[in-house]
Write a protein that binds this DNA or RNA. Structure first.
Lengths: 399, 399
DNA sequence: TGGATTTAATTTGCATCTCGAATTAATTTG
DNA sequence: CAAATTAATTCGAGATGCAAATTAAATCCA
């Protein structure tokens, strides 16, 4: 167990202050003091050292209550955007999206590569990722040496701690030490993370979960992912393993195991539609769901049936997740949401039926159709979080 | 967020030292220092204050390396059993088991009440529990004022933080503030906890998970429970809600939702056997599983089929739990294990089939058939843990 | 205009904590 | 019985947070 010494104490309080400044925008020292329950003295000391380190900036305006109130005006503090830059990426089967963000998580540049990398050998994928990172950094007017770290979000079973990809639907290989590979190529610290976990943090920082300390996110894409926020922290399985909902087993038949991914994954929903050549083409280009949506609007009964079935399955799966984690909110994201009402309604209905009576009302379902940039931004947030968490690297003893 | 001050630092290190002494039996200060990575100075100071508070004792023997080694002999430290007593209880449908333990978790007295309380009104149950606690304390030669706290473990959806029982298969009422009710009756702090969580801690402290920081336990009784140990701590859902596996949904049919409890709960397995009057009688007396075992040994094909079916369902459910939590070990406990080989084999087989390839080998299955006392002792451990966690009540500033 | 008032932030002084080095304590060795 | 060895404590230094006092920077109002 980590021993508690003054250094740890400082680190904890520093993170607490830094995170408060991040969350509550320009904020004065007094307000930080109230929010963190730290004494004004301590807040002053910590913000002083954060200023020295160039992690935050002062601003002599923006106090909402000015004019109306007497006394010395509050000096507002905010993150220094220029304190660091990170790269975040979402790597999916048919495209990659890269973003460069500043220290606040604001996007400086975006790059989308609409390349189908499905099941390419790892070296090819690494080539493309490396290229994408380099180009996006260049687009932001920066060089790689200006980038503190890179975080790559991708579907599958990811071992965050070690940077290994145990398996991913978009990879042919298994058990790849992708973090080491990319760190070496880019000569920059590279983190590998489940895409669902990444967008979970995106929602905690910028999206629909800013007000919550506990939350669960379910991503419905080619595969099904799960992100869990517990006590303001990302919750990963033992050993830092990410969850992969698609692997969940629904039942067993004579032919073997029936997994969720085979019932409610993108391929499962669209796979039956081989009749429509244009749909098959759209799927190959990664626009399958968008096209499916138009088919559904045109009353394609076969597809509607598939969507309803998938929605039902996902609906009760979410109820099961709620049974296990009891989060106040479940956020659903991902391309499958584009299937529209038939899908969403059956999902909602199944959820309502499946949620145990004793948990009725503990959790609300929220649907969110953010674009791929948001996922990549989430990956960037993961990189930033690890940066925030270790600011004691930056300082020695306080002044 | 809790602010980090010297007091918290002390509390953390005190807990760390106290827990090391609990785990590693009689142990010298040097060894504690190595184990906790605290300096000998600090260990001396903390153990000094623990001695002052009477929480630990010295013992001038027991050093294994004595005789063979020169120098000043080590003084061994151990928990002071007399520092406090707690009561733990397991409350099940057909019986209640109470234990009184000392500060080490050693059992001082046991009381089993073979009473069927199934779905009695809450006041009746509270009467019986109160009576059981009082009698067991008396049996231990103590009075209730000697008892620091009581922890009641029972199946269902329990809100540990507030002490509410949201629902329980053994209760007619729902959403009962049982902690408040029993605290008032006993005039002693009373904790309400899921029985599965309680036995999870029992295994972490005394049983099959002493060597692990992460672990999952599945209890197979009348209902199915889940306990999760994450990073040496009990993991509860958001808001301190316990998990209830029986509520998991396996699928949806026209007739409604199919829940795990209806497929693999005790009643589900034995329920079909209404032909055998003696079995029905045994079930009523809470010995259903034991009797079922003899029937299975006598090749009761109907029951064997039911057991195999249940084993299969539970097997893949456990694979799903592993998919979500990736624990290095899954411990299975509960009366259903008494169904024997047909059940266990089908469970194991289904698990092997259902576990995703990428998670193969991360988790081992362990079966454990501890008796009810062990569950009750787990509840006592929950009470003790909360006592250990707040030893800063006991001391002011160190001496 | 300028002192009184008010609120923000910093400085000062103190108590607590951990830790390294030095010291004391309790053994065995020869 | 002194030397060696290991355990545990004491002492002093450095870091931290906090309360109280002080300083800073505004507004208010005669």
């Amino acid at each position: 167990m980590k021993t508690a010494d003054p250094e740890l104490m400082r680190a904890m309080n520093r993170l607490s202050v830094l995170d408060t400044i991040r969350r509550r925008g320009p904020i004065s020292r007094v307000e930080i003091s109230e929010g963190t329950e730290l004494s004004p003295t301590t807040v002053s000391a910590i913000t002083g050292s954060l200023l020295d380190d160039g992690l935050i900036l002062t601003r002599h305006e923006g106090d909402i209550r000015s004019e109306t109130v007497r006394g010395r005006p509050r000096v507002m503090l905010e993150l220094n955007p220029a304190a660091a830059r990170v790269v975040g990426a979402k790597i999916a089967a048919s495209r990659m999206v890269f973003v460069v963000t500043d220290f606040c998580g604001e996007v400086l540049a975006t790059l989308t590569l609409p390349i189908r990398i499905d099941r390419q050998p790892i070296s090819v994928i690494a080539d493309i990722v490396e290229d994408g990172v380099r180009r996006c950094v260049l687009d932001a007017g920066l060089s790689l040496v200006d980038v503190h770290s890179v975080c790559l979000g991708l579907p599958g079973v990811i071992e965050h701690r070690s940077g290994h990809i145990r398996s991913s639907p978009i990879l042919r290989d298994t058990n790849v030490d992708f973090a080491a590979e990319m760190s070496a190529r880019l000569d920059t610290t590279t983190i590998v993370e489940s895409d669902a976990t990444a967008i979970t943090l995106a929602h905690h920082w910028f999206g629909r979960a800013r007000d919550l300390e506990d939350m669960v996110l379910v991503s419905l894409e080619q595969t099904l992912g799960l992100g869990v926020l517990h006590n303001n922290r990302l919750f990963r399985g033992a050993g830092g393993l990410s969850h992969n909902l698609g692997d969940l087993v629904l039942g067993m038949s004579k032919d073997g195991v029936v997994r969720l991914s085979s019932q409610a994954g993108e391929n499962a929903i669209l796979g039956f539609q081989q009749t429509d050549g244009r749909l098959a083409e759209a799927v190959r280009l990664g626009r399958g769901m968008a096209h499916a949506q138009t088919l559904i609007k045109a009353d394609d009964s076969q597809l509607i049936t598939a969507a309803i079935r998938a929605g039902e399955t996902i609906g009760f799966t979410i109820a099961n997740i709620v049974t296990l984690f009891a989060p106040p909110r479940v956020i659903l994201v991902g391309s499958s949401l584009a299937l529209g009402e038939p899908f969403l309604n059956s999902l909602r209905d199944a959820y309502s039926l499946a949620i145990p009576p004793s948990l009725q009302g503990v959790s609300e379902l929220v649907f969110d159709d953010s674009n791929d940039d948001f996922w990549a931004r989430g990956a960037a947030a993961v990189a930033l979080y690890e940066l925030y968490e270790s600011p004691w690297n930056t300082t020695g003893p306080a002044r």
